[in-house]
């Protein structure tokens, strides 16, 4: 089974493309494939508690998408504790994920 890492770098409040990318993430997950959504840069803004995009994260988790946020990006934006269920990681973790056999990575 292929593993997909989707790396979202864009601000969901700034770019409507994020909606399309989210549909892609959810669509792949619905096919039963292992999917990780790695949020970085302004992509982590969706994890701020109270954001209207928290609901999207909840939907991802319902569809078994693992949501990970870059700790450096969170700290830069003053998000000390992201939305429930979001795992905080760093680039070391991303590199390990990228090098897992059979993994496909897509950056947005």
């Amino acid at each position: 089974m292929a593993k997909h890492i989707f790396i979202e770098s864009r601000d969901p409040f700034d770019s409507a493309d994020v909606d399309y990318f989210s549909e892609l993430v959810q669509g792949i997950a619905n096919r039963g494939q292992e999917v990780i959504l790695f949020l970085v840069q302004n992509g982590v803004l969706a994890t701020r508690r109270g954001s209207k995009h928290n609901e999207r994260i909840t939907q991802f988790m319902k569809h078994k998408v693992k949501v990970v946020a870059d700790g450096f990006s969170l700290r830069e934006r003053g998000i000390s504790k992201p939305f429930d269920g979001v795992e905080v990681a760093d680039m070391d973790h991303l590199v390990k994920l990228l090098l897992e056999p059979g993994t496909k990575a897509i950056w947005h």
Partner: peptide, 10 residues
Amino acid sequence: TTALRIIHAA
């Protein structure tokens, strides 16, 4: 910055 961080980690 992110690209250089990834390269550094690798």
